[in-house]
Design a protein around this nucleic acid. Sequence first.
DNA 1: CTGTTAGCGCCTTCAT
DNA 2: ATGAAGGCGCTAACAG
Lengths: 334, 334
Amino acid sequence: MEKLTINDIATLAGVSIATVSNYINGNYNKMSQKTRDHLNKIINETNYRPNSTARNLAKNENKTIGVSIADITNPFTSVILSGISEVCDKYGYKVLFTNADNNPDTEINNIIRLRSENVLGFIIDSVNPNSPIYKSFDNLTSVMVDRQAFNPHIDTIVTDNASAVQAMTEKMMAKGYDELYFISWPLDSVSTRLQRYQGFLAATGYENDDHLVTVPHRGDKPLYDEFNQRIKAIMEARGDKKIGFFTMNARVFLRLLKAMQICNYTYPTDYGVATYEEFDWMLTMRPEISRIKQDSREIGKQAAQMLHNKLEHPEQKQPETVIIPTSLIIKDSF
Amino acid sequence: MEKLTINDIATLAGVSIATVSNYINGNYNKMSQKTRDHLNKIINETNYRPNSTARNLAKNENKTIGVSIADITNPFTSVILSGISEVCDKYGYKVLFTNADNNPDTEINNIIRLRSENVLGFIIDSVNPNSPIYKSFDNLTSVMVDRQAFNPHIDTIVTDNASAVQAMTEKMMAKGYDELYFISWPLDSVSTRLQRYQGFLAATGYENDDHLVTVPHRGDKPLYDEFNQRIKAIMEARGDKKIGFFTMNARVFLRLLKAMQICNYTYPTDYGVATYEEFDWMLTMRPEISRIKQDSREIGKQAAQMLHNKLEHPEQKQPETVIIPTSLIIKDSF
DNA sequence: CTGTTAGCGCCTTCAT
DNA sequence: ATGAAGGCGCTAACAG
């Protein structure tokens, strides 16, 4: 079964390729009912599919957007992608997918490949939004998501980091905690981490980093033993101070919980806790966890919608930052 | 900044388009070092990118594979996608991504769109592998993943369902349980659910479905209240029989846990439990959960590898089922 | 080493 | 209502 071309169909049907082309494109008014039916029959029988590469070339358009994802195994990210995908479907964009596996170099390669595919636009969930490669990007054809560059020149959809954390931290403070700690991956220069930490600082008023605990790393490898020691030390030193922790995302939250279990501390008795991110599995924890819920699907949807708008109505503008609101869910974990 | 074509570059450089084409394709032996340098300079300055649509048309090849995902927000699935993506990168395939959001109709549309894109091959994580649309698929260009058709005519990569569950159930039986229940979404005709249930039946020897508990649904909506009642009834009727549960995936496991919490039962005292699937958040549960761990990344990788092999060496063969092994992790939850 | 030319499969005026 | 022909941007012989 060879690949059929428009020519084959034309000769099979005994018409010219122009007529077949018109049929394909729904210009039925340009042919008799008879040829229309005839073509319909032939095309069904032969199961002919026009070559979309040739179509794209001829029309000089390629309704494809490139999506560069930092780490698709992150549940938060996969929900973003579902939002992107939904909106792209709606507008008829194809989605060219790449995944960087959290590796900045892979990400750069992905971007380069996407570019050479002549995609119409980009949605980028970046490992490192400050990478020089984005300097060459055009705010007319790209949208970034989640992590933000220090000096963004591309529209970015982010979740509400700082003020949500600030609000949650204030709730904790209102419960009379003597000390609050912010637990995080190494801040490095990741905007989401920094912003969340800023919110924490704004609420607590701490003026140095004594209450910042990051999971130690050797290279890429987290050193959980050291982390556990650190937590243990903090707990043992607490005396009769009331002590609480805010974890910067769900994974860190799990690590904290684990560290606490090892030395037999339980919340909310021995310590209070709240976290950024919400997942299903939190629903079965007792007492329930206070948490900040973000609408990741909405992030994806807005990113795709915004890109669509820009592609339809190109207009050089100052880069914009859209903040998707979060919701505070307060339970009895502190 | 207009789109540059190979022609523009040729005139700019004062050479023919053939030379430019050769340069683009790395055939440097077909030109002098001088023109090579010259072209290099021009292309860098102009930031020229060859139009990949035109290239694909000219070479009549399109190194793209279409990926149809049932539900990308499922953590299990997103790991599969990461495996697919990794191997596709390695071989230089682009990934055209679609997501069905668990909707069979959306899935069919996605497949149709993918097809008209003239992708080289398909990897399909199907909502409904028995859909008639797959009848028209060719085992030369497609691989399915996870769920399996009753009468597969396409190679399928699945996880070890039946025998893993059987092994786990046998471990439970060895602990002297008087009754074991299999907790699941409605079996419908989903192969993974059926196979896991078969494993359960094989181990227990139950000859009817009295020990199958599915989460009741009204349409698409799960009726958790009814489910909770059902669990409660089972627990209250257990007398002093030792009773255990195997949950068919992590989400159902969470629902069972929740139902148990509502009536204040805890494992392993009041009941025993084990589940299919492993996720990070299980690590903090006390006692730890006995579980069946599947290597979903490997599923994705093998699917992509297999597709690649088929595309390179087309050969009509009987459809094959590849079973990726799982590992039993036995803890103190039963 | 470099240029000419005929396609790749389809679209789109412009005639008929 | 239908057909002929040029063109989309690039590749791949084949000449020179």
